[in-house]
Amino acid sequence: MTSLLDIQNLKLNFKTVQGQVEVLHGIDININAGEKVALVGESGSGKSVTARIILGLLQELRQARISGEVYFDGRDINTMKPKDCAKLRGTAMSMIFQDPTSSLNPVITIGQQFTEVLRRRNNKLAQAICDEQATRMLNDVAIPDAQRVLNAYPFQLSGGMNQRVMIAMALANRPKLLLADEPGTALDVSVQAQTLTLMRELVNDYQTAVLLISHNLGVVREFADRVYVIYQGRIVEDGPTSALFANPKHAYTQALMNAVPRIVGTGLAKVPEVSDAFLAPRITHSDVT
């Protein structure tokens, strides 16, 4: 299998008043076509900035210094012109955000926003065809009364409904890669589980590769084929989901797994002091445990 996304030695610096702050210290991530990969880590570990670099959004920020290679479909996003990169967004790759209700524009109907997304692929698409495609996509995410939803504003729909709309929009143009940044974290747990199941079925059907960004190990275990654990801007451990969950080797991964609440939970285990020795050994699991 050829890899769809190949990130090599990606570094990110932010220029601040105090000077340079390095946020990513050279990470490598690899996603094959149709593969579901998770990037797990705590807040501030660099998960979300990674997604925004893949989209080419962070490159437009003047304070950001980015080095390394981000090959998407064989082309390096870091050296691409902003215009060419924008052409990929919404067509070859798309994204789902944390809070569906606040990620949809409050004063524009779902239908108009959907049309705009569909016209990213073909801007001469007739309104009737857009409506028809949107209706079909909404039916796919288990929204039967699509017409009502298309005429509605986000505030008129429930969070779970908006999340399905987001999923439908994200997959409408059949992207090769879907970035899901903590999808549905703002929703309640059961609705989140429902929409994730829905999303998994759809990406399997469409053969869409997914980079799922999450801090929720339960979600990751359910969803991903492969997992990368990111800690303080470094990938510390990676491997197939089952292997990694069966035998977490890095101290941080172990701590993360122990932090999952259980009936007899003991709270967050102590992670040893950060040192180069702690961060340096990247552990890669093979398929056999």
Binding site: L55, N105, P106, V107, E116, R120, L179
Partner: peptide, 28 residues
Amino acid sequence: KPYIEMAQAYGFFPSRIARIYAFKPSLI
């Protein structure tokens, strides 16, 4: 706001984002 980031993530044209997606909610 997140919905502007969403519009950017979907590659909408910056001028269109300004005129419609950012202006409309701000006009009120």
